Amino acid sequence: MLKAYKYRLVPNRAQREYFAKTFGSVRFLYNQMLADRKAHYELYKHDKKLLYAIKLRTYTSFKQEFPFLREPDNLALANAKLDLDAAYQTFYKHGAGFPVFKSKHHSKASYKTNNQKGSIRILNNRIKLPKIGFVKFKHHRKFNGLIKSCTVSMTPSGNYYISVLVEQDGVPWIPAPHKIGIDLGLTDFAITTNDAGFSEKIANPKHLEKAEKKLKRAQQRLSRKKEGSKNRGKARKVVAKKHEEIANQRKDFLHKLSHKIVHENQVIVLETLSSKNMMQNRRLAKAIASVSWSEFTRQLEYKALWLGRTIIKADRWYPSSQICSACGDKGSKKPLGIRTWTCIPCGTDHDRDINASRNLLSLTL
């Protein structure tokens, strides 16, 4: 099983300079190879035989033309080439967007390198990386297994992180006692009901909304700074730190909640939501983007895979909030504004969201 562990790096000045050069070299090589592919296609697109017969330049050939590419780790450049290949495959096979050029100011600053015969290893609170040696890092989580690769990245706020990919044995399977149905919302982030009949509403922490006032002030200060000035650079970093703080709070909440649910339940039923379509509603777009339903679902899925849990996704058109969980009567359509209702055939009073979670739970039976 492959598992990634993310840590905070604490590089010194020389190491920060090396990282900056490597980020730039990887970005430059990616753009050069993308431009080379586009030019190759334009030149031979009318002759399919030549288009596939004439090979593209290898990433190593660019080192002769651009000597500065010899400074960073060679595997970082090799992985840039693989990233471009993967982008093309995703475009052709899965209909994603065509690969675009990386920007110095808008693309993520990162590079990936591989472990070859112990070129990456951990010693106490330091991690050894190719061509740079040992770098201090916050070693807050231990692991057992073989390090396969690692990805070094820098956030817009200037913080450095390393994600270490480890090959390790799977976790011993221990069955969980419950099954659970989860209805997702905006006022309450999640409404759950398990097979013991316990229902719970988990409040939406609204990290963005709570920090919006301070974020707005920071953005206003940034807009008043002169373009290219040092003060503008400082103000930009303040805004970036605010955004990073909000993102970290959101991730912390989602990880803790998904961890709890996966460890307590053997079968988890989720409703299928199309966030992209729902964000067409301008009044709700920001709230839907902030609540991160898709990220929560993603976390549940991979954590369930680790622990041998079962994830069931309800059909997209399954009317979980319209059906009476007591007698199964659908009745008339209930608009979104109706939060409580009484089933006419059986007389059961329903909370709309709890009723939906109960209906989702019934899909496990």
Rank of each mutant, 00 (worst) to 15 (best):
K148F: 01
A211T: 10
N114P: 02
K206D: 05
M154Y: 10
K117N: 15
K117G: 13
N144I: 09
H207W: 11
K102Q: 00
T155R: 02
S229Q: 15
G228L: 09
V152S: 00
S199I: 01
I120K: 02
S119M: 15
A96N: 15
K225M: 03
F98P: 14
G181K: 04
F101N: 03
N159P: 00
K234Y: 11
I147C: 09
F143I: 06
P175Y: 05
Y111G: 07
F134L: 14
D169P: 04
D195H: 06
V171Y: 04
D183Q: 00
K128F: 05
K108G: 05
H178T: 09
I132V: 13
N115F: 01
V164K: 14
T192S: 11
H178K: 14
I174W: 05
F134W: 12
K138R: 13
H207M: 01
V166M: 08
K225D: 05
S199G: 12
A203H: 12
A109T: 05
H94V: 15
T187R: 14
V171E: 02
A109G: 06
W173K: 07
R217C: 11
F143P: 06
H140L: 05
N159E: 15
I127P: 00
E227F: 13
A235P: 12
K131V: 15
E167C: 02
I147Y: 01
